[in-house]
Design a protein around this nucleic acid. Structure first.
Length: 593
RNA sequence: CGGGGCGUAGCGCAGCCUGGUUAGCGCGCCUGCCUUGGGAGCAGGAGGUCACCAGUUCGAAUCUGGUCGCCCCGACCA
């Protein structure tokens, strides 16, 4: 491709709205352009990168034995009602009415495809002899995100690779899951990402085992908890917390009601009572599928809604509105507590509260709190669970060491679904005993656009993007410095031909621009290898070669420059492949251990 | 949905508070000259219903009300 013919609208200045490095650099490099909130055009250069990512994903999915298909984005609303996710998904679903008349939605735009694939499976998979089977697609998903963010990181419309496995039993499911997990590792190895696989919460997708693939990064929206000692790693939504010793329960006096006039928040109450926040507990009331429940966590801790949802066995868990809360507790938020509510609602208590010798809670009387509440004595009606978000230095659930906290971009997620959808949609097959049993499913997603975001977040410097070789829109940018000089252009054309014949993507910057402009743009768009052909070099019989990741350039003899440069490129590819193989071997070794 | 900010040329911004000829500046773009190894210089030029609607006024980019859009924080979340 000749730059003079290409649409590569680079920008000198950073667009004001771009906050994340990936956002501003993708805009400045002329790779994407915003249409509206959470909707982006991929310009030719950005689309080339997207296609590189798609190609890697496709190759590894195929290599893992998955078969590609393509499902529609427009789904009949009945299918979503059948799985009961029409309500659960809530506002995230983009709804359409295609009836030509009034009334409610007749269709939704697919935010994910468990329903559609299960519909395919219930019609087409009839026998255990057809199993195992893994199907995948690379397709646009639609989610009405409440708040699109950070350029292409969180958008309303995005490309997802979604795969679904169908198995006859749990052992087969485990094999299918492991094959996808391994394929994901290879994909992200090939992208050159410093990813980590962490235990994850499965969320509304359902199921009982799940891992997320995270790329560590400052703008990452997810919090990863990990233990440096035993390598336990989990999303904060999921991260368990090791046991903490319970305080010795001495002979304690009964609890007392004390006036806390006007003190609403934990901080205000604790300051007033001159107690640390860690000796108080907040009582939070949630609606668990329309049934009110209460959760008690220490004042200085955060409730983990996923954990509460799991122990309460709720499909949908949302904070209760103030009105119902006051009706239940007889006091406004700020004075509510767990004592004497056990008859009215289920109460769940975090282990850290249970471990306290005594604690301050709301009195369910406006402007009053109870001090000296002894959990072991006074809160016996509450179930005790791990209900809070892990914090830095909390004990590891495996080894007890202090855990650490970091941020990451979620680029992939694998789930064991079990029979959640096959049960809901009645997708059964005949097993080897002739019995009709539900298909056992897994699902596996990769946010393809996020591969670009993650690559730029982890690969950039002051001058611009630094694409990994396997994702770069072009591997080589060939820069003839004097386009009016016939010898320079001839040498460049020869190299272009050699690269093209070798199957190497090359961009020739044939623009009539001063060298500085070309160098700046080459750095900005992040092409891994820059080859400069100039009058000066040709006079000495040399061509300049510079890797985007290297500090300095080096020269190669002009006579056989094409071969030499192709050999360098091949060596880099080989090094990446070798590293991927090493990691693969490490994974195999750790599995056998 | 709550809080904050912003909307003036493709991009970055000034002008608005204190209303008044033809709305400016830088980058980019076009033409010419010149220059040619890290975003040069000079000269000329094109490009804007000042987000939209309504109001106040002799007169609105500027004041008032509303609407829409975008960004950030929070809530929410595959």
């Amino acid at each position: 491709m000749r730059w003079s013919n290409a649409l590569i609208p680079t920008l000198k200045e950073t667009p004001a709205d771009a906050v994340a490095p990936s956002h501003s650099l993708l805009l400045r490099a002329g790779m994407v352009r915003q249409l509206g909130a959470g909707t982006y055009t991929y310009l030719p250069l950005g689309f080339r990168v997207l296609n590189k990512a798609i190609q890697i994903v496709r190759e590894e999915m195929d290599a893992a034995g998955a078969q590609e298909l393509l499902m529609p984005a427009v789904h009949p609303v009945e299918l979503w009602q059948e799985s009961n996710r029409f309500g659960i998904m809530g506002e995230i679903l983009m709804k359409l009415n295609l009836s030509g008349e009034g009334g409610g939605p007749t269709h939704v735009l697919g935010p994910t495809h468990e329903e559609v694939i299960t519909d395919v499976a219930r019609d087409l998979i009839k026998s255990y002899k057809q199993l195992p089977l893994t199907l995948y697609q690379i397709q646009t998903k639609f989610r009405n995100e409440a708040r699109p963010r950070f350029g292409i990181l969180r958008t309303r419309e995005f490309l997802m690779k979604d795969a679904y496995s169908f198995d006859a039993d749990v052992a087969q499911l485990n094999q299918s899951y492991d094959a996808m997990y391994e394929a994901y590792c290879r994909i992200f190895d090939r992208c050159g990402f410093p990813y980590v696989a962490v235990e994850a919460e499965s969320g509304p997708i359902g199921g009982d085992a799940s891992h997320e693939f995270m790329v560590p990064c400052a703008i990452g929206e997810d919090v990863v908890i990990h233990c440096a000692k035993c390598s336990y790693a989990a999303n904060r939504e999921k991260a368990e917390i090791g046991q903490v010793a319970a305080a010795a329960a001495g002979e304690a006096a009964p609890y007392q009601e004390v006036a806390t006039p006007g003190r609403k928040t934990i901080r205000e109450v604790c300051e007033f009572l001159k107690l640390p926040e860690a000796r108080s507990a907040k009582f939070l009331i949630y609606m668990a599928d329309d049934r009110p429940i209460g959760a008690l966590v220490r004042g200085d801790h955060e409730l983990n809604e996923a954990k509460l949802r799991r122990v309460s066995k709720a499909e949908r868990l949302v904070p209760a509105d103030p009105g119902p809360i006051e009706k239940i507790a007889g006091a406004s938020i700020g004075s509510i507590g767990p004592i004497n509510l056990a008859q009215k609602i289920a109460v769940y208590m975090d282990r850290s509260v249970a471990a306290l010798a005594d604690v301050v809670v709301g009195a369910n009387r406006e402007g009053f709190h109870l001090t000296g509440v002894v959990p072991a004595r006074d809160l016996t009606h509450g179930e005790v669970h791990d209900l809070r978000n892990a914090e830095k230095d909390d004990p590891c659930p495996r080894c007890g060491s202090a855990m650490e906290l970091s941020q990451g971009i979620e680029i992939g997620h694998v789930f064991k679904l079990g029979t959640k959808y096959s049960d809901a949609l009645n997708a059964t097959f005949l097993n080897d005993k002739g019995a009709a049993v539900p298909l056992i499913m897994g699902c596996y997603g990769i946010g393809v656009n996020r591969i670009l975001a993650a690559a730029v977040e982890t690969g950039h410097d002051a001058n611009g993007i630094i694409w990994p070789l396997n994702l770069a829109p072009y591997e080589v940018v060939l820069v003839p410095l004097q386009v009016q000089n016939a010898a320079v252009m001839e040498a460049a054309a020869l190299l272009e031909q050699q690269f093209t014949e070798a199957g190497v993507d090359v961009l020739v910057d044939d623009r009539e621009q001063r060298p500085g402009v070309k160098f700046k743009d080459a750095d900005l768009i992040g092409i891994p290898l820059r080859v400069v052909v100039g009058e000066r070099g040709l006079k000495d019989g040399t061509i300049e070669v510079k890797w985007r990741t290297d500090e300095a350039a080096h020269t190669v003899p002009a006579a056989n420059a094409g071969e030499t440069i192709l050999a360098e490129l091949q060596a880099r590819h080989a090094a990446i492949a070798e590293k991927c193989n090493e990691r693969r071997a490490e994974r195999a070794a750790s599995r056998n251990r």
